[in-house]
């Protein structure tokens, strides 16, 4: 399955920030539970699939080819930990009580 075989013409553009308004978080402003291990590795990473696969769009491309993580938006799914091709994401659970807190689930 390659990207070429997929008709992407009807993929709608979505403003994820609007959707994230529906989520409740207890943001930990003191400790990031996600970190880029080595920014140089991101610069060397051509595809940067993290910019697409993260379900909350927490991965943002920066000038110079680095990537920044808006960890406060994370829903702790784990996708980035296993799908970052060079495994360049430090991933742990937020401290107890912090992070996403589903109201309905």
């Amino acid at each position: 399955m390659t990207a070429k075989t997929i008709d992407r013409s009807d993929l709608p553009e979505v403003y994820i920030d609007d959707i994230l308004m529906s989520l409740k978080y207890f943001a930990d402003e003191h400790e990031a539970h996600l970190k880029i291990i080595d920014p140089q590795v991101c610069i060397a990473c051509k595809d940067k699939p993290c910019l697409n696969f993260c379900p909350v769009g927490a991965y943002k491309a920066q000038e110079g080819g680095t990537v920044q993580i808006a960890y406060q938006a994370c829903v702790e799914c784990g996708t980035c930990r296993v799908m970052c091709p060079p495994r360049n994401v430090f991933w742990k659970l937020p401290r107890g009580g912090y992070g996403v807190s589903y109201k309905f689930g």
């Binding site: 399955m1 390659t2 990207a3 997929i6 992407r8 009807d10 993929l11 709608p12 553009e13 979505v14 994820i16 959707i19 595809d47 699939p49 697409n52 696969f53 379900p55 909350v56 769009g57 996708t79 296993v82 799908m83």
Partner: peptide, 21 residues
């Protein structure tokens, strides 16, 4: 499946929105 999603370079929330539309 994660690897297919990643290879297709589709944002999951766009895939969901497409379903809803």
């Amino acid at each position: 499946t994660l690897d297919a999603l990643s290879a297709a370079q589709i944002k999951p929330y766009e895939l969901l929105q497409r379903y809803l539309k």
